[in-house]
Design a protein around this nucleic acid. Structure first.
Lengths: 112, 112
DNA sequence: TACACATACATTGTTATACTATGTACTTTG
DNA sequence: CAAAGTACATAGTATAACAATGTATGTGTA
């Protein structure tokens, strides 16, 4: 009955969470291409990211200089755009983690 | 330097989080009025909610029948609109909690 | 008494972002 | 050879936080 409200709510919660998750996956230094990122995130977190969500997100992160990208030709198939984190991105993701942990601490305080 | 990005990010994270927090405060059954809620949430979670954020939020929650409201005249001062949770609201907040905990589990997996 | 500040609710306009839908183009598989 | 998968991208829509602004009352203080 209120599935619709919950559904919309989840979509709202994802706002902000996705950039955090993407930066965290890239944090280790390994480069990922878009399609790969979607599958990787789905595998680890069970969160499904629409392609129409990911690509604009990657461009925003790039505009903010938190990640950089590079086209890589494949021996066969479509060229891939590989994304990797910048020092500024690492810096930022650390601050995000701090905020997230505080937020969760607050939520735990309030939900129990 | 990237304070601006972080600031915008926090604002996005709040989307969805705020309704969750408000419903959790009301969950116990006690009625709160808007101004009081803002202060209560600030006290418990250190999260500051703008009035221009809270009042439309409360109206949305009321439209969804997750909370109900009642005007209460004061012996002195401005009448207060008291909000309290509905059975449907309690139901919903339980589902939200489930999602939140799963999300946090995923985030923890990815951040460490 | 006048002014600042706190209490209390509300609306308007702006901005950011997730998502759906759609499109392009190549490769693999049944 | 058609369908499904790989891979990137954009346009349009909906939602929600927030700043700014407005209304109105009460309290403290100089």
């Amino acid at each position: 009955m209120n599935e619709d409200f919950i559904h919309k709510w989840i979509s709202q919660v994802k706002k902000g969470t996705l950039s955090f998750i993407v930066l965290n996956v890239l944090k280790g230094g390994k480069a990922y291409y878009g399609y790969d990122l979607i599958n990787e995130i789905k595998k680890i977190t069970e969160i499904e990211i629409a392609e129409g969500t990911l690509y604009p997100l990657m461009n925003r992160l790039k505009d903010e200089k938190l990640i950089k990208s590079e086209w890589v030709e494949q021996e066969s198939g479509i060229p891939r755009k590989y994304y990797s984190i910048t020092p500024e991105g690492k810096n930022t993701v650390t601050k995000m983690e701090e905020y997230w942990h505080n937020l969760n601490k607050s939520v735990l305080k309030i939900t129990k």
